[in-house]
C-alpha cells in the first residue's frame, strides 16, 4: 500500500519549472532513494510533500492526505530538510525540548534521541558551535523525536565524514528493519545503494526512472575494449551479432552487450587478430550518471 503518493506534481517559480508533472509512489515499509543531480528538483518536491511549498499543479499526499491535514503530523512524519534549521544560540537540548513540546512527547525522549545520534556529550553546547556533520545528526534526532512511521530525509549524508556516512547507513538500515517507510534523497547513488529497496530518479524536474535496485543493477553492463588492426571489420561483425560496438580509434573498438570471451571467439572465427582485450566494469553510479545525463533538460530546476 502506498503511503506517499505524488501525482502530476508541478512547481514553477516564475519562468523556472523546478518540478514538471512528477508522479511516483512509495509503499509502506520500504526504503526509497530519491535521486538526482543537484538542481533536479528533489528538495522542492519534498517541500511540496510536507506542505511548505504550494504546488503549481498536481498533488502530494501522505497516507492519503495533504501533510497539513494529517492529525499529529510529527508522529506520522519525521523530516530532515536542512541541517542548519536551528537557532545557533540555542543548545541542542533546548532545540529538541521545543520540538518535544510541539510533538507532545516527554522530555525524557530528548535524551533518548540525543543518545541515538551520538550527541549526548554535546547536548549542552550551542548549535552555532556544531560542525555541519553534528547539525545533520541533530536534524536526524529532531526527525526521530516523535517516533514517526515515515521519514523524509533530504540529503542527510551531506557534510558527514566517511565514518558518519557509515553510521547513517547503519541507522537507516535499523529504521528500515523496524518497518518504517523512508524516503531519502541524495545526489550520489552510492550513498544510499546499500540501504534502499528502490529508487526514484529525476532530472530537471522530470521523472527519469522508478525501479527496484535490482532492476537498475541489470542496466549496468560491462564494457569490453579491444585493440585490433581490423577494427572496422570487427565492428561490423559484432553489430551483426546485436552487440553495440563503437569505433573509438582506427585500431580500437568498445563493445557493450557481449562478453570478452564472446568477442574473442568471434574474432577467432573471423580470423581477426586481437592485440589487446580488457573488460571495464560499469557500476551503478555510472548507470545513474548516464540516466540523469540523457534526461530531458528543457529548463533549469532548483
Amino acid at each position: 500500500m502506498a503511503v506517499i503518493e505524488v501525482h502530476d506534481l508541478t512547481k514553477r517559480f516564475g519562468a523556472l519549472t523546478a518540478v514538471d508533472h512528477l508522479s511516483f509512489e512509495v509503499d509502506a515499509g520500504t526504503v526509497v532513494g530519491f535521486l538526482g543531480p543537484n538542481g533536479a528538483g528533489k528538495t522542492t518536491t519534498l517541500r511540496m510533500l510536507l506542505g511548505l511549498v504550494e504546488p503549481t499543479e498536481g498533488s502530494a499526499t501522505i497516507c492519503g492526505r495533504p501533510y497539513e491535514e494529517l492529525p499529529d503530523p510529527l508522529h506520522r512524519v519525521g523530516a530532515v530538510l536542512e541541517a542548519s534549521s536551528a537557532y545557533p544560540g540555542r543548545t541542542a537540548r533546548n532545540h529538541l525540548r521545543i520540538q518535544a513540546l510541539a510533538g507532545q512527547v516527554p522530555s525524557t525522549r530528548v535524551d533518548e534521541v540525543l543518545d541515538l545520534v551520538g550527541l549526548t556529550s554535546a547536548a549542552g553546547r550551542r548549535v552555532g558551535e556544531f560542525s555541519f556533520g553534528m547539525r545533520q545528526r541533530l536534524g536526524l534526532a529532531t526527525a526521530l523525536l516523535c517516533d514517526p512511521e515515515i521519514l523524509i530525509l533530504d540529503e542527510p549524508a551531506n557534510g558527514l565524514d566517511p565514518e558518519g556516512v557509515r553510521w547513517l547507513r547503519d541507522l537507516l538500515r535499523g529504521l528500515a528493519g523496524e518497518g518504517r517507510t523512508v524516503l531519502v534523497s541524495s545526489h550520489i547513488l552510492a550513498e544510499v545503494a546499500q540501504t534502499v529497496d528502490s529508487v526514484v530518479i529525476l532530472n530537471s524536474g522530470h521523472l527519469v526512472v522508478q525501479s527496484t535496485l535490482d532492476e537498475l543493477t541489470t542496466r549496468a553492463q560491462d564494457k569490453v575494449r579491444i585493440r585490433t588492426p581490423m577494427a572496422e571489420r570487427l565492428q561490423s561483425v559484432l553489430a551483426a551479432k546485436a552487440a553495440t560496438a563503437v569505433l573509438v580509434a582506427p585500431d580500437r573498438v568498445e563493445v557493450t552487450g557481449a562478453s570478452a570471451e564472446q568477442v574473442g571467439l568471434l574474432a577467432a572465427e573471423q580470423a581477426i587478430p586481437i592485440f589487446e582485450i580488457t573488460t571495464d566494469g560499469v557500476g551503478l553510479e555510472e548507470v545513474f550518471i548516464q540516466l540523469t545525463a540523457v534526461a530531458p533538460a528543457k529548463e533549469n530546476a532548483r
Binding site: 510536507l50 506542505g51 511548505l52 501533510y67 497539513e68 503530523p73 510529527l74 512524519v77 523530516a79 530538510l81 536542512e82 542548519s84 534549521s85 536551528a86 537557532y87 545557533p88 520540538q99 510541539a102 510533538g103 529532531t142
Partner: peptide, 18 residues
C-alpha cells in the same frame, strides 16, 4: 523574522502546519 533567517520556520510549520 528570525524563523526565516535561521530556517527554523521549516520545523515550526512541520509541527504546526496552520
Amino acid at each position: 523574522s528570525g524563523e526565516f533567517r535561521h530556517y527554523t520556520a521549516t520545523l515550526t510549520y512541520l509541527g504546526t502546519p496552520d
